[in-house]
Design a protein around this nucleic acid. Structure first.
Lengths: 339, 339
DNA sequence: TGACATGATCGAAACGTTTAGATTAGCGTT
DNA sequence: AACGCTAATCTAAACGTTTCGATCATGTCA
């Protein structure tokens, strides 16, 4: 900018005024300055600007796994929204590790991001402390977090799973296996509640041996399914509360020599683009990924636009049960299948 | 930092020296400073540091679509690699739009990223100019770019498709449909060459009506497939040079009342996690996503570590044909199927 | 004792912006 | 002619670091 100013024989203040339109500058000088900018190929240094302005027009986004199709889609939507608004987004993946995420958030805050969208991988104690003294707006994505009282957009997980399990029950299923991630994050907790309530509402007993915990990965779904299927009294249906794990479930079913839906019905959380072209077409709970991403972006953009001290807003969206052909009615066959 | 210095009754220079270990500071002062840092909760401002140092420890990554499973995986790997190295990554998605990408690259350079990884969506003219005068190391990902002579990691696309098409030919297929993205980007061009060469090597004619161009999206694959399948002399196999488009292909096959592989064989580029659990299990060309991501990251990290004027390095990796059950042998049935 | 090397600490400039406040010129009023 | 007002421009401080060179105390050696 100094060089531009010299070349145009004006002060840097005038150059700045012209570039930002913060003051009127005469047509004559404007022209000289613009010419100089072109000649020199000047680009404003956003870092220097950030230092002075205290804002970077950059936000941080941290999610557990970008390869989970739910997060893939949501990240994509969020990225586009902020792109449109002239913000850059720094992306971090956490691999469900709490310390990693804390570290990443610190890194992002060091870099002075203007805001943060976080799908929290664990409890909120440290998160709360970190963001409290950084004084940066945060919106929680997908997962609520005890003690962190900020904007959030989540799904009505309990209801979504309640509906899915009720659907299975109505098909005649009585023993329904349930595979979930560790329940210390809110969606897993709520989904589990939905499962229990659905059984309860139908007057069915809850068989604890049909509830298996994994760590969100395919292999965990595989192992859990293997265990359930090799028991003497196996379930007639399995619901996977997490998308990557359902792949493991399908592989286990295949490896054990059964087939879906003939021998066992399967449904899971999170839809994916392939779900209705291959067989079996999985019955899933689809999240409104577009809306989730947009709402999260909007909440944060609103804070960034200056609306700092509105009370925290919590958006709860509805899931949608996509009924396909991976679950079959049991009827009179119930006895033989679950035997 | 000023506050820390005051609280510890030392100069800012000393604080800086201690934090960065750039000079020895006495145990006594060290302790006072560390105490002050803790008391105040001081965090170094990375923006100010970047301004002074001329480096941000941030890189820019721009890809066409994060929802394309190939890019999903590669982005994930790259993100992890830079995370380990203490770099942040700014992610941009381009939606295959050239102007958008140019704009994003400018945005990234304004923010003084230390390096750039780009999966270029179009020709390189502007890219070359942009990076030339920014003097920032660039590595091209997945796609080469005429005139941009930098580090790159790509697949041997021609060979990969050659092998896949040859496989189909060996199964007895003679009329093989080919669906591709616009051929002005290098992988699409090379894959097409592989297709033509495979037919040529087998002494088969190239039927131009069996080659269809789309814009990388599911709908394009759908339309292209619809057209091919409703012709009087339809192909017995279809190869999709792009993953999202193959979904469209499968939907078209379903909608038109055919089934795969009984009525028509299908293979495509890019593997995905679901490919071997659902039916049909798609035969695909798998890219070594892990290696691609790691190599790209390593190339850039090497430049960032100071190895600036080594000549451009171009890494060409091999694809792997994953043979499953979506392509069936034709043998004596060839006539009736292609009729 | 004086000269000198060594080690610890500090002062101040620099990175490239923005912006408050000062300065100047031009103009219309009285 | 003197005055004030407005619009255009400039000067200089500030943002929070890093780092060069200066300063100063201490110990070593002749």
């Amino acid at each position: 900018m100094l060089h531009v100013a010299e070349a145009a024989r004006v002060s840097v203040a005038t150059v700045s005024a012209l570039i930002n339109g913060t003051a009127t500058v005469s047509p004559e000088l404007s022209q000289r300055i613009e010419q100089a900018i072109r000649d020199i190929g000047y680009k404003r240094n956003a870092i220097a600007r950030s230092l002075k302005m205290g804002t970077t027009r950059t936000i941080g986004l941290t999610v557990p796994h970008i390869t989970n199709p739910f997060f893939t889609d949501v990240v994509s939507v969020i990225q586009q929204a902020f792109d449109r608004a002239g913000y850059a987004v720094m992306l971090c993946c956490t691999d469900e590790d709490l310390n990693t995420q804390d570290e990443q958030i610190r890194l992002l805050l060091d870099r002075m991001v203007d805001g943060l969208i976080v799908a929290r991988v664990g409890d909120g104690a440290i998160l709360k402390r970190i963001v409290d003294d950084a004084n940066v707006p945060v919106v929680l994505l997908d997962r609520l977090c005890k003690g962190v009282d900020t904007d959030a957009v989540v799904l009505d997980n309990q209801r979504a799973v309640f509906d899915a399990i009720t659907y299975l029950i109505n098909l005649g299923h009585r023993r329904i296996g349930y595979i979930t991630g560790t329940s210390d994050i809110s969606p897993m907790h709520d989904r589990m509640t939905g499962y229990r309530e659905a059984l309860h509402a139908a007057g069915l007993p809850i068989a604890e041996e049909l509830i298996r915990f994994g760590n969100f990965h395919e292999i965990d779904g595989y192992n859990a399914t293997m265990q359930m299927l090799s028991s003497h009294d196996r379930p007639s249906a399995i619901f996977s509360a997490n998308n990557p794990m359902v792949i493991g479930t399908m592989k286990a079913i295949r490896d054990i020599g059964l087939s879906c839906p003939e021998d066992i019905s399967v449904a899971c959380f999170d839809d994916f683009p392939w779900s209705d072209v291959f067989q079996p077409q999985l019955t899933t709970v689809a999240q409104p990924v577009q809306a989730i991403g947009e709402q999260a972006a909007n909440l944060l953009l609103d804070r960034l636009a200056g609306n700092r001290d509105a009370p925290p807003r919590k958006l709860v969206l509805k899931g949608r049960l996509m009924i396909r052909n991976s679950c079959r009615p049991l009827g009179a066959m119930a006895q033989s299948v679950s035997a």
